[in-house]
Amino acid sequence: MTDPKTLWAAVSRAALNWKLLVPLAVALELFNRLSPASSSTLLTEVAILALFATSLNLLMSFGHMVSFGHAAYFGLGAYGFTLAVTRGGLAPEMALLVGPLAAALGGLVFGALCVRLTEIYFAMLTLACAQITYTVLFQWYDVTGGDTGITGFMIPRLGLSETGYASLVLGLVALALLALWMIVKSPLGLMIRAVGQDRARAEALGLAARRVQLVAFVIAAFFAGIAGTLYAVLHGSAFPDYAGLGLTLDGLIMVVLGGLNSFAGGIWGAVIYEMLSNFVPKFIHQWELVLGLLLLGICLAMPHGFAGLLARLGWRGGKGEK
């Protein structure tokens, strides 16, 4: 297993690779401290969605598994946390771990089914699993509150101010993204990429491809669960829509906008998507039209998205595997 020395070397390497993002993190925190409370809430949502999109991106860009049901694990994270507080009687601070674990467990169960298939059949099975999750959350009134969800069970943001919670989320999301980056750059990440690029080749070398895909699926679900938990804490509530197809599509759009085949793609995508959805409607009523045109342009002219554009301009932070 990894000894402390090699672990520290890996962390150092990852931190160095992130040196361009350190000023960004400082700028974000300054923005958070100096801007109105509503901006802090927006910043919190962007950070949470960046983590959600990056967890989806782990599957898509590195494992080459397109999931049409990734929101299920966001929802399981949110409900795992919420039910741990409302049904389990845990303090919210203690329940924070339950959400991601519930999502990982969901990822283990559904992933074991999904990785038996490939390509479009895999995608359809992820969609089916997500729809099952959504339906259970929507209709199991006694436990999940059905379509009205679960609200008012805690003080939103763990009682912190908008600015304070934004700082907490920024810190946690930064740690989670660093962990995901280290996974991508680890031997396990190499295996995930190998199976994604050529499953038959990997199997001919002796790799149990399904097992690797399942591990990737559970990891992605776990980090989506962290995002879902942080979102439930932000609003002090959980709704079935957290596991709905709409959020999955949002995630897919973020990854494509930000850049497939790039680790930073999910982060850029979440920032661009949230900016568009918050500011464009102030000027153009049909903001989805703008989004549609933007997607059309990216798919036709910039298939590697915003990160690909940065890479073309020579900024290594946007560079990923092509």
């Binding site: 990894t2 000894d3 680890s186 031997p187 396990l188 070398l205």
Partner: peptide
């Protein structure tokens, strides 16, 4: 390196030391 990690057994993917 992918071939080496695979050939080193199922837990090798979790070990930077083996890598």
């Amino acid at each position: 390196m992918a071939a080496h990690v695979i050939a080193s057994g199922r837990w090798a993917a979790l070990s930077r030391r083996i890598y």
